[in-house]
């Protein structure tokens, strides 16, 4: 029997795509994009091979944080419809394997960033991974409805890392890009939370609609979207970007406010529950993704032309 491998009949083992899914590829695409923009708008030219490697480090670092998040949140992922099929929650990958995978990738990404770019970029990358894992996942997510307000900082780091990789320091523009993602995160996630609140409620995650109700959340989405407009215009007002970015920030911001207004004015019952199946919140969520891609794209175009 020594040459026989006995395996639990409930498991046929994970596929390669399950391991890839641990890295949250969809979140990774946003991280890669904002990190690349930070690198492109930096005033220092970086060798293309080193630049691509630096962006890869940002992507792998973010993916590693995602894998550790899936390890830690496997209990709540399993009861939420949106996340029940994730590889750890569904039992296709052992929790300890996911944790080991995430930790090894996190260490490798930070070390490689230090070799390829510099200590500042590696330090900020390590801080972003630590922030996502310890501050957001382990501390805030299950304790406060402000979880994604503070936790949003984790997703705002990549532009700063990209800039730091090229320049070795942190300037005003990457800090403003950080602020834009920071203020963009609440209306983005709360729009999603509005139509996924049953899921969060079932899992016991204190998202804003679960704790304060849908009506209060709609007001918060609108207020944060209003605040986002001047924040997004700051790089133009301070002369750090040109007119292409300025015009884009104004038009995109106005459109975002229009969508947020739709969320605020959504038909609802006395308890604030949507009578339109949260159609405006779904539209606002989709638009928020477009907003960030186009706004950051305009920032890069402004720098290149």
């Amino acid at each position: 029997m020594s040459d026989t491998l006995l395996i639990n009949s409930s498991e046929l083992g994970a596929t390669a795509s399950d391991w890839l899914a641990l890295l949250k590829p969809r979140v990774m695409s946003l991280v890669v994009f904002t990190g690349a923009i930070g690198l492109v708008v930096a005033p220092v030219h970086m060798n293309p091979i080193l630049a691509v490697t630096a962006i890869l480090c940002i992507a792998v670092g973010a993916g590693a944080a995602g894998a550790i998040n899936m390890w830690y949140d496997r209990d709540i992922d399993a009861v939420m419809k949106r996340t029940a099929m994730r590889p750890v929650a569904a039992g296709r990958i052992e929790p300890a394997s996911a944790l080991g995978f995430g930790v090894v990738l996190a260490i490798c990404s930070v070390l490689l960033m230090a070799v390829v770019a510099n200590a500042v970029a590696a330090g900020v990358l390590a801080a972003s991974i630590g922030f996502y894992v310890f501050i957001y996942t382990m501390w805030l997510k299950r304790r406060t409805p402000q979880n994604i307000v503070i936790g949003g900082a984790a997703g705002a780091f990549p532009a700063v890392i990209g800039w730091a990789a090229a320049t070795g320091d942190i300037g005003a523009l990457p800090l403003l890009l950080f602020a834009i993602v920071f203020f963009w995160t609440p209306p983005h996630f709360w729009s999603l939370a509005l139509y996924a609140s049953d899921d969060y409620k079932r899992a016991g995650v204190p998202m804003l609609p679960v704790v304060k109700g849908a009506r209060h959340t709609r007001v918060c989405v609108f207020v944060y979207t209003l605040v986002l407009l001047p924040v997004a215009l700051l790089p133009y007002w301070l002369g750090l970007t040109g007119r292409i970015y300025g015009a884009s920030a104004l038009v995109l911001g106005a459109a975002f406010i229009y969508y947020a207004w739709g969320v605020l004015r959504d038909r609802q019952d006395e308890a604030g529950v949507s009578l339109s199946n949260d159609a405006p919140a779904r539209a606002a969520f989709k638009y928020s993704l477009l907003y960030l891609f186009v706004l950051f794209g305009a920032c890069a175009i402004d720098r290149l032309v």
Partner: peptide, 11 residues
């Protein structure tokens, strides 16, 4: 040594 065989009574 021989490569391990995959085997389960219910498979």
């Amino acid at each position: 040594p021989n490569a391990p065989r995959v085997e389960h009574e219910n498979w």
